[in-house]
Design a protein around this nucleic acid. Structure first.
Lengths: 184, 184
DNA sequence: TCAAATATGTTTTGACTCGATACTATTAAA
DNA sequence: TTTAATAGTATCGAGTCAAAACATATTTGA
């Protein structure tokens, strides 16, 4: 059974990677670079660093550093030094980066395939994969990476939404993003 | 929605790849080489060629040829010339190849994660991913790769099970394997 | 019948990925 | 104030990958 699930996920991932390779051809972007760019477009301001990308992709920081350099050279991201901690550099997706992602991510044929499932099936698949991923992340002991508003540190106070870790106020857009400190 | 599904599959695949990398360390096997070996252990005698592996992994035949050379050098597979068509070479997994796969494929932590789902959830996930993969393969126009016994060419005659394409008799083990001619 | 087209597969080349290691700079801790 | 930890970059070598050229074997078709 886990055999079959393993096989299915591998094959879906192979197809995705293949389509991603084609979509990235126009800008000369490799699959892994597109994944990094996509992640940066979905994460919040606590999670837009080289190290966060490293944990998310499951690679080493040296490797990721190189991929990010490519994205910067192509003006798809820009670097912003952190105000308080000068070791940290924030990575922000530029407008042309957003434009590229809007066209290519998720790949068109994948979206078509998803649309051929019923709405109920789509929801069901999402829930189940989410459970599986959570289990897997727990077993491997990795950073969970979840959506801010579902996090146990997320506090809805009379003065607005707040993060219980940083004590900063969060906007309605903020809480939709992915955070590396996510915990349940 | 397809955004979320895309993201989930990518992340599961990243974790799998990472674990695969670790598991392959003992034999010096790269993730893609392990995937090829795993495929060869699950496919039938019509689908154990360089070209079939190429289609399955979605790479080019030159690339795959190199990965297979590594597997052969490590005595995890052997080559068998086809009797009828001398262009074709069949790739068979050796005993040590099978032993390696039994230990590492699917990765242990992934299996643990799957076991934390209920039996019903596991079945449900499998069915949904199977549907999604089928849709995706259809949209991309790729070879489907399905299990022999579910194929429209599979014929259950009084003289035994037969393939309607090759007209060869199939054993009970044969029909459990993956075939590149699979069609519904 | 026999040349042209097609199919299976290998080899080579160059761009890129990746982990490992060593390195710099900044911050935290003892 | 040393010492350790954190964030990140640079370099190296092994390996992936697509593309192209190549070698054989089979099929097609005039």
């Amino acid at each position: 059974m886990n055999d079959e699930l393993f096989n299915l996920i591998e094959r879906l991932a192979n197809l995705l990677r293949q389509e991603t390779r084609l979509e990235g051809l126009s800008l000369g972007l490799q699959p892994i670079q597109q994944e990094a760019l996509y992640y940066l477009s979905t994460c919040n301001r606590y999670s837009d660093t080289t190290l966060a990308v490293t944990e998310f992709l499951g690679l080493t920081k040296g490797t990721v550093s190189q991929s990010l350099k490519v994205l910067e050279n192509k003006s798809l991201i820009i670097r912003q030094k952190d105000e308080k901690d000068k070791r940290i550099t924030h990575l922000k997706v530029t407008n042309s980066g957003q434009a590229f992602l809007a066209k290519t991510c998720p790949p068109q044929k994948f979206s078509s395939a998803v649309k051929n499932l019923s709405t109920h099936e789509q929801d069901e698949t999402k829930d189940l994969l989410y459970k599986l991923l959570n289990n897997y992340q727990e077993v491997t002991g990795r950073t969970a990476f979840g959506v801010c508003k579902n996090c146990k540190f997320n506090q809805n106070t009379p003065e607005g939404i707040r993060c219980g870790l940083t004590f900063e106020t969060l906007s309605l857009d903020d809480v939709k993003l992915i955070c590396k400190e996510y915990s349940t």
